[in-house]
Design a protein around this nucleic acid. Structure first.
Length: 345
DNA sequence: AAGTCGGGGAT
DNA sequence: ATCCCAGACTT
């Protein structure tokens, strides 16, 4: 594997993509990138990372910020517990670690939101520690390279993969080696149609020799997602719409949202709306009607309104239906405003 | 070991 | 439609 290691490193130096966090050695900045990159593509993260770093340039700035400002900077990225954990960890670092990130994986992993992967990533990339990473890319690369033909969802297989990743991490430039594995998985050793002819380690690859790279790694099929029906109300008074804060746990935790909720089995939308408004906003509906279809259709974020009904409608206060802004990369999450100003006539 | 948690791109 | 993405956390 020593030969493969050298090939991976030289391939990485020649082929790595430009990423802004690859221009810094600041452990804080690298940590933020790793938190944002969890289950999130590089291209999506880049603009968020730039904005986040200019708004919260160091641990102390993040530790002392308002949570709503942090959630606002995160709005649109998804998995919002990451933002909550990020600030919680920043406060621990600020108070218990002198504002400096711990430089070892074991201590890093004690912080909220930092698991085995992120601890290894920060330790190796920011602190040159010989710690492995095992993300979706590395699982795929190693399963193919080593011909691991067992379900990678099983804990025994996962442990084997961590073991192999650990063996590769030991040696010079562990951070670059780890990034080389991930970069290879993202650009060459892809889930479908892998570019094996461009792979620097194909000659060592078991799956390449057997010709079954695309069938690896093996993972159990996911169960179909359960379907839920939900209602959302647009409660308008004096040109403003009512927003409520969602519970800090669960879906879109801690974000502002229009009042509403999931229907229980057998419940009509109208009954569910009445119940949701009473529970979530302490309101009793006197009058409600369905929103016009052009208002609830047409964009991903607006789909949350589909099937909804409007409490206490007032045509004079409703804005003209707006075309969804397809240029915007930031969905209309209501991160930091309890009351929405309605624009339009 | 299985569920939950987002949003978006690729196929 | 389905899979996947530089995963972490709860149950």
């Amino acid at each position: 594997m020593r030969l493969a290691r050298k090939r991976l490193l030289s391939w990485y130096r020649a082929n790595k993509r430009a990423m802004p966090w690859r221009e810094t050695r600041d452990p804080y900045a690298i940590w933020i990138s790793e938190a944002m990159l969890q289950q999130t593509r590089v291209e999506t993260v880049i603009p968020y990372w730039e904005r986040f770093l200019s708004r919260f340039p160091d641990v102390h700035a993040l530790a002392t910020a308002d949570l709503d400002d942090v959630l606002g900077a995160w709005a649109g990225l998804g998995y919002y517990s990451r933002a909550r954990n990020l600030q919680a960890a920043a406060r621990v670092i600020d108070q218990d670690h002198g504002g400096k990130l711990p430089d070892d994986a074991e201590t890093l992993q004690t912080l909220p939101g930092i698991g085995r992967y992120t601890a290894g990533a920060v330790a190796s990339i920011a602190f040159d520690r010989p710690e492995p990473v095992l993300d979706g890319n590395v699982k795929r690369v190693l399963a193919r390279l080593l011909g691991i033909r067992k379900d990678i969802g099983q804990s025994a297989t996962l442990e084997r993969l961590w073991e192999e990743a650990g063996a590769l991490a030991r040696g010079p430039h562990p951070g670059d080696l780890n990034q080389a594995l991930m970069e290879l998985g993202a650009t060459v050793c892809t889930p479908r149609a892998p570019r094996c002819e461009s792979c620097p380690v194909s000659q060592f690859c078991d799956a390449w020799a057997k010709g079954d790279a695309e069938s690896l790694p093996i993972k159990a099929r996911k169960k179909a997602a359960r379907k839920v029906e939900a209602v959302t109300a647009l409660v308008v008074r004096r040109g403003k719409a009512l927003a409520v804060r969602r519970p800090s746990r669960g879906l879109l935790g801690g974000l502002w949202d229009l009042p509403g909720g999931d229907l229980v089995a057998g419940e009509t939308p109208r009954a569910g709306l009445t119940r949701a408004l009473r529970e979530r906003a302490g309101l009793e509906i006197s009058r409600a009607s369905a929103l016009p279809s052009q208002y609830v259709d047409g964009s991903r974020s607006a789909r949350r309104l589909r099937g909804s009904q409007m409490a206490r409608p007032s045509r004079n206060l409703l804005p003209a239906p707006r075309q969804p802004d397809r240029q915007s990369t930031r969905p209309a999450h209501l991160a930091d405003r309890p009351i929405l100003e309605l624009t339009g006539r």
